[in-house]
Design a protein around this nucleic acid. Structure first.
Length: 395
RNA sequence: GGGGAGAUACCUAAGUGGCCAACAGGGAUGGACUGUAAAUCCAUUGGCUCAGCCUUCAGAGGUUCGAAUCCUCUUCUCCCCA
């Protein structure tokens, strides 16, 4: 990758507020810049989409600057309304602490969390000691009209959905974080622009230089929609190498260019070359790069081989979960429930009738089929759909 | 505080006394095709001891041979007025 800091940073940004100031800050470099990034500990499944700002933070870290991670244990109590069409459920203190720990653990592969190179703060530090009058004072720093202009609120109002007062406090709280940590730069997803701006506004009102705001582009999910666990199109940072490689391989062709840019460090020219070739080849390279980054070169290579063997060669996976069952004789639906290939008898029946169930490679379409288990040998391999397997033995 | 509207399965959304386990679309799952891409086509999408039965239409009661549909109360939301 090229050495010019601004170019490195631009690869991961869609909006830059006050580009001139960014250049100036980077140019002076008299001191490590404080680069703020807020983490909402409202969930535990961190995915590659969340990894994009991390990778940008890593760039800053490599350039000698200081990432300041804000664990929003105060803000999490209400939840960022950005992009939401409903209200978030409140979280308990324990949940928040657990989520934050899990989050940090997972991003450890992308960012150096050594206290020497990275500052981690909890915003309960300042919100926890605020009394009601302090909160009112903070509330007086923004206007309702400004907040209600926002798309997400606008849409909810139009759809006749509730917008609660406390949700409007969120941007102010995030902005206040910037004041408290005296950030020079704040990074956020590109839907965060409003919240980031609030930081500038509050900083100015409190005698600080307004932070530069950088937003990172959204890394789309494997199906081209916004990456989200609820769509099942995400690649979790805690996924195994195999899962990760496989997930990336299921990425739509259209999404590849963005993925090369946002999820790998591969040089621009090289990316273009790959994208011009066969999509499958390019995707394989992409999947290896992504996997290697979180796991290792070796793990990525192994995952690629296993993938090829399984899906191109049509062979069985090498790590089929083994079940030792006490009963020798099972009706097919019950057996599937027992080994978690189906959640209910009805689901099992659907799978069977749809032709998705195989025993040792042979499709079974009879719902009433009875399976007799045996003790020794290879056992029986039961398969549901393309990727769920169970190897069965009589205990 | 007053008046009006509304709450249906994962989501959107029909249904306004029996033909409703509940139209339609989306999503999801399975199958065909394939590069675990896209597009397309087919099937499925509450549960079960599955040609039958059981539990669902915000919650609790009630009317009726019979209710998601009618009545009462409760909870939540939206709109208008103050």
């Amino acid at each position: 990758m090229t050495l010019d800091p601004a170019t490195q940073i631009r690869r991961f940004t869609s909006d830059i507020i006050d580009e001139a100031r960014l250049e100036k800050l980077l140019g002076e470099a008299q001191r490590p810049l404080r680069v703020k990034f807020g983490i909402d500990p409202t969930f535990t499944d961190v995915h590659l989409g969340h990894g994009v700002p991390m990778r940008l933070l890593r760039r800053f870290q490599l350039l000698g600057h200081l990432p300041v991670l804000i664990i929003g244990d105060g803000t999490a109590r209400l939840g960022d309304p950005t992009g939401r069409n409903d209200q978030r459920p409140p979280l308990s203190v324990e949940e928040v602490a657990h989520n934050a720990a899990t989050y940090l653990e997972q991003i450890g592969n992308l960012l150096d969390l050594d206290p020497k190179w990275c500052e981690v703060r909890h915003n309960s530090e300042w919100f926890g000691t605020m009394d009601f009058f302090d909160a009112l004072k903070l509330a007086s720093e923004g206007t309702a009209a400004r907040l209600l202009e926002r798309d997400d609120f606008r849409k909810r109002m139009d759809a006749q959905l509730p917008v609660h007062m406390h949700e409007m406090m969120y941007p102010l709280m995030q902005g206040w974080d910037s004041v408290m940590v005296e950030s020079d730069i704040e990074i956020g997803g590109n839907d965060q622009l409003f919240n980031l701006h609030m930081g500038r506004q509050l900083q100015e009102r409190h005698g600080q230089a307004p932070q530069v705001c950088l937003t990172t582009p959204l890394l789309l999910g494997t199906d081209g929609r916004k990456m989200s666990k609820s769509y099942g199109n995400h690649v979790g940072l805690n996924a195994t190498a195999e899962e990760m490689y496989g997930k990336v391989m299921s990425l739509s062709d259209e999404g590849m260019a963005d993925w090369f840019r946002l999820a790998t460090d591969l040089e621009e020219a090289e990316c273009q070359k790959l994208l011009a070739g066969h999509p499958r080849q390019a995707k394989d390279r992409l999947a290896r790069l992504v996997t290697a980054q979180i796991h290792s070169e070796e793990a990525a290579e192994a995952a690629a081989q296993e993938f090829t063997r399984r899906f191109r060669g049509g062979e069985l996976p090498s790590d089929i979960p083994v079940f030792q069952l006490a009963e020798p004789s099972w009706s097919l639906p019950n057996l599937m429930k027992e080994v978690k290939l189906a959640q209910s008898t009805s689901e099992a029946r659907r799978l069977i009738q749809g032709g998705g169930v195989k025993l040792d490679g042979v499709a079974l379409q009879d719902v009433k089929h009875v399976i007799e288990l045996t003790a020794g040998g290879e056992g029986l391999v039961l398969q549901a759909g393309k990727r769920r397997f169970a190897r069965l033995f009589l205990a």
